[in-house]
Structures are given as structure tokens and as C-alpha cells.
Design a protein around this nucleic acid. Structure first.
Lengths: 134, 134
DNA sequence: GTCAAAGTTTACGTTAACGTAAAGGTAAGC
DNA sequence: GCTTACCTTTACGTTAACGTAAACTTTGAC
């Protein structure tokens, strides 16, 4: 056996995750600083579980949707109720629904922008054809 | 007639637009600094046409989708071919398609996140029901 | 043992997108 | 003429999300 960090238990090194998701290790450590990830350690070295990997995935998805890291952390926390107090649950429910509404708005924005771009594309294609059949 | 800036020709003052879209006048001027808007002037005062208003709308839509102002400017410029050179048109076409791909990715991200949030919402609702029927 | 690759911490630098004064011009209403 | 409301420019401040560099340790391969 020659290279890979972990062969049996499925865990990941920081550079493995960095490669897989095409981010820098600096970024991953930064997410940890901000409290979004809390990998285990073997000595000094960080060891990432599949759960950590999933969280990173969620973070990056959030980024693509224009969320801040704080917002992504909130969303990640939404996935496991945790505090079972009724007030907390209600607050959480409200947040979830607010998020869904925002996503709904984004969906609409994308639809409209897609249509606009499609029109632009059509016009550009027409213009190109005009040049060629000239 | 008592207040509004313009009664006949439909133009807008900076604060009118600021109110309508719920942004600050500072932000609107900033977009101008960055070359995204170029309103007419009456003396020093900025006067916005419906076209300017539309551009502002595009900018804000872009923001909601996580675009930078530079990217939004690019997109706005995509809407009118302008330079009719063939190379330019091809480049433009490529950009448009790249944008569409990105939006496609975002659509997928939203779908997935929506589903995840729906599951979370269901779980939270169940938890709340459990508390009440306890 | 040593060399390169990958890991670590600490810390200063950078960019985007405005916020927030400061200091002043202009026009309407009283 | 004075206030009030809205406009202007100039300019320094701020936050988020890392980049980049320095200085050091650990580890597998030869």
C-alpha cells in the first residue's frame, strides 16, 4: 500500500477534501475557525469523517447560492433539531420556512434570467447567421 | 400638483428608485461608479430612465443569485449585442451559455436544498406534535 | 538519516460592496 | 429669509472570505 491516508475506516485528510471539492486547505481551516466544521484530530492533524465531508458539501452548495458562512452554519444546524424545547423548535421552523421562501425567490430569479439569456442567445445566433449568409 | 419629480415623461429620481427597490441611494451611486448605470443629469442631479430602472432591477436580481457587480455588468451587456464583430459575438455566445450552465447548477442546488429543508421541516413538525400529544 | 510532501499555527494583506460622515448646493413652502 | 428635504462629491471605515507568507513539525519513501 503506498499512498492514501486511511484504508479501512473511511476518513479523509484535509488535502483529500480540498482536491475533491476544489477548494484550498486554507479555506477548509477557515470554515473550522468559523465553527462550521469540527474535525477530529490525530495529534495535530485533522481527520475528517464522512459527516464532516457532508457539511463541507453543504457549505459549498450554500456558497453557490450566495449564502454567507453564517447563514450556511444556520442551515447546517437546521438539519438536526438538537434543542428539543418547543420555542426553539418553533423558531427553527420559522427559519426553515424563511429559507424556503428565499429559495423560491431565487428559483423565480433564475427562471427569468434563463429566459432573458435564452432570448439573448437567440439574437446572437441570428446575428451570426446574418453575418455568414451575407 | 405637489410632489413628484416628474409628471409626464416617466423618469425617476434616485430616492424614488431607492424606495422602490429598497436599497440606499449610496448603493445606486456606487453602481454608477462601477459603470453599471449611467443616468442622465439635469445640472448635477441624476435622472433615471425606465431603461436605467430595468438595469437596476437586473443588478439586484444578480445579487440575489450571488453574482458580483462585475458579473452583473457582463450580463447586462449581453442583452444588447453592440459590437457586431463575429469574434465578439462568438465570445458573447460562449459567455451566455456558461451563465446558463451556472444557473442550471444553481437550480439543482436549490432543488436539493429545498428537499433537505422539507425533510427538516417535517421532522421539526413531528417533534412539535410529539411534545403536544405527550 | 535525509529529503520531499503534507501537515500545523500565526499573522498580515486583499477585494468587494457598500456604510458613514463631512461639507456643501438647490428648490419648495411658509 | 429661513427651514426642511433632497441632492451632490469626497473620502475614510468596515465586514466577509479567504490569499499569502513565514516558520516549524511530522511522516513515508528511499
Amino acid at each position: 500500500m503506498n499512498n492514501n491516508s486511511d484504508n479501512k475506516n473511511n476518513t479523509f485528510s484535509i488535502s483529500e477534501l480540498a482536491k475533491e471539492f476544489d477548494v484550498t486547505t486554507r479555506a477548509i481551516r477557515f470554515y473550522e475557525d468559523k465553527g462550521l466544521l469540527t474535525p477530529a484530530r490525530r495529534g495535530q492533524t485533522r481527520i475528517y469523517s464522512p459527516a464532516d465531508r457532508t457539511k463541507l458539501k453543504l457549505i459549498l452548495r450554500g456558497k453557490r447560492l450566495g449564502l454567507t458562512l453564517d447563514e450556511s452554519r444556520d442551515i447546517i444546524n437546521m438539519y438536526n433539531p438538537g434543542g428539543s424545547n418547543e420555542d426553539q423548535l418553533s423558531t427553527l421552523l420559522a427559519k426553515i420556512r424563511e429559507r424556503k421562501n428565499y429559495l423560491q425567490q431565487q428559483l423565480h430569479d433564475i427562471e427569468v434570467m434563463m429566459l432573458d439569456l435564452q432570448e439573448s442567445e437567440d439574437r446572437v445566433i441570428d446575428a451570426l447567421n446574418d453575418l455568414k449568409t451575407q
